[in-house]
Simulated assay, not measured.
Amino acid sequence: MSVASEYLQLQRQSADELVRQHAPLVRRIAYHLMGRLPPSVDVSDLIQAGMIGLLEAARNFTTGRNASFETFAGIRIRGAMLDELRRTDWTPRSVHRKVREMAEVVRQIEIETGADAEDAEVMRRLGMGAEEYHAALADAASARLLSLSAPDDAEGGAAFDVADGESLGPQDSVEHEGMRRALVDAIGSLPEREQLVMSLYYEEELNLKEIGAVLGVTESRVCQIHGQAIVRLRARMTGWTEQVEAGNRARATGKSRARGS
């Protein structure tokens, strides 16, 4: 056996051992995510995707990295699970449409009043009762619980994408950084209670029950507050996304004219 063949065999053995040792990490991450997902999501699908992420991490890990393998693998495993959730987006198109409608109403109210849109006025303009409105807020939270990165449905609307910056081109990187700044500003403008829920959910990664215990409210109330924050963020990000889309159209027109000249 050549030196190269021996080296490759040792690499494969090392990767296989890392996968065996860290398989429980996949289940732990999967069940942690399940605490933040609807019952319709199958944990076995997450585990399967996570095992693929673990295998890729084992193959690509080098001892010269600053992070430990568990930290490195955890990022890959979680990323693979989120990719699977995005790919199989469980949210019906009707929910996406409803979220867009709610966000547009919130935007109109806040433009007119210069203040946070109140639930009562949003419900009045949408023609919704309290029960239907709160159910729509819960749906809004589910439609956007992947760190504000799940894709929109094919009918349009802006996604709050948080893609890997290293994979972006120069223009995409500028837009990506602009989106991050706009999103940070939008979150900072939320009512205090909504800001707190967003921080506990997305930064501290507490589930709704745990957040309810912190705030002293029910899990369903946390879900409503979360949904309110998502709808309000979408409304307040609309101006930024419209600017980006206008810029993209202008660049496309310029390129078309350049090719025709």
Rank of each mutant, 00 (worst) to 15 (best):
60 N>G: 15
134 H>T: 09
112 E>Q: 08
117 A>M: 01
99 V>I: 07
129 G>P: 05
154 A>T: 07
95 V>N: 01
84 E>I: 02
96 H>A: 12
131 E>H: 12
92 P>F: 12
105 V>M: 02
97 R>W: 10
147 S>N: 12
55 L>E: 15
126 L>Q: 09
137 L>Y: 03
57 A>Q: 10
107 R>E: 11
97 R>S: 07
50 G>H: 03
91 T>H: 01
94 S>H: 08
173 S>M: 05
96 H>L: 09
101 E>G: 09
157 G>W: 02
116 D>S: 00
126 L>W: 03
175 E>H: 02
69 F>Q: 11
57 A>I: 11
154 A>G: 13
166 E>F: 06
120 A>W: 02
167 S>F: 02
161 D>E: 14
171 Q>S: 02
59 R>N: 14
69 F>D: 06
54 L>Q: 06
84 E>D: 09
107 R>F: 01
75 I>E: 07
104 E>L: 11
101 E>A: 14
136 A>P: 07
79 G>K: 13
88 T>R: 15
64 G>K: 14
59 R>G: 13
158 A>Q: 02
51 M>G: 01
162 V>C: 07
71 T>M: 06
127 G>N: 10
119 D>R: 13
96 H>G: 14
78 R>P: 01
96 H>W: 12
141 A>Q: 07
174 V>Q: 11
140 A>Q: 00
86 R>D: 14
59 R>H: 13
153 D>M: 06
